[in-house]
Computed example of a mutant assay.
Amino acid sequence: MKIKNVMSPRASVIHFDKTVVEAAMMMEAQDVGSIPVEKNDKMIGMITDRDICIRVVAQRRDPNITTVEEVMSEGIEYCFEEDEINSVATKMARNQVRRLPVVNANKRLVGMVSLGDIATKVKDPSISHQVLSGVSHH
């Protein structure tokens, strides 16, 4: 089964120079915990709810002026919409991530796939177990 059959087809990006408040508002509105960060039409990282907690709140930075680029997790793992679910599950487990952006052949963002998507849409429970085990491993 291809990842395009289980991914969430809607995905947003946030521009690198937006504020952390804007990122948090996007997360709330979309009910997500991470958003890919875009700069010069390329994904350069992810900002997560954990990034906001650890790198903004815990460090007492002002979220109204702190930019997404200052606190995002740099680099980005992604998968292609034509990738097989097994290979994506392996990548998620290996990289200890619960969500991956999904891109098309032109590397344009077309969706997001999460552990929840795999757990609820894939009939083989060993695949979601693989991701969860990898993500939970310290």
Rank of each mutant, 00 (worst) to 15 (best):
D17N: 14
R60V: 08
H15K: 14
A11D: 06
K39N: 04
D17T: 01
I3W: 04
K18E: 13
V131Y: 07
L115V: 09
I65V: 15
D117R: 09
E74G: 14
V71K: 13
L109D: 02
D83L: 07
V122Y: 13
L115K: 07
L115Q: 08
K123D: 05
S73I: 01
V71P: 07
K107A: 02
I47A: 12
V20I: 02
I127V: 14
V88Y: 06
R55D: 06
H15D: 12
C79L: 04
I118G: 02
I76C: 12
I3E: 01
P9Y: 10
V21H: 05
V37C: 01
T120G: 01
E74S: 14
G134C: 10
S128K: 09
S126I: 02
M7D: 05
P125D: 04
R55P: 03
V113W: 11
S87P: 01
M46K: 15
A23L: 04
P9E: 11
Q130S: 07
E28L: 11
T66C: 05
I76Q: 11
I54A: 13
R55K: 15
M27T: 02
R108S: 05
N95A: 10
E70L: 08
A105K: 13
K4R: 13
E38D: 02
N86A: 10
S87I: 10
K107W: 00
Q96Y: 03
R50V: 08
H138G: 12
N64K: 13
P63L: 00
S128R: 03
A119C: 01
T19I: 13
K123F: 02
T67D: 04
L132I: 13
A89I: 09
G134Q: 11
Y78A: 09
I44P: 00
M1S: 08
A58C: 15
M25G: 01
N64P: 00
T90Q: 10
K2S: 03
V97P: 00
E77C: 00
S34D: 14
V6R: 02
G45W: 05
R60L: 04
D49N: 03
V102Y: 08
E77H: 10
R61A: 00
M92V: 11
H137Q: 14
I14K: 13
R10G: 03
D117C: 08
P125A: 03
M46F: 12
E70C: 05
H15C: 03
G45V: 04
S87Y: 05
Q30M: 09
V97T: 15
D31T: 04
A11P: 07
R50M: 08
E70R: 14
H15N: 11
F80G: 02
K18V: 01
I47F: 03
L100E: 11
F80S: 01
N86R: 11
V131P: 00
E22W: 08
E22I: 14
V57L: 11
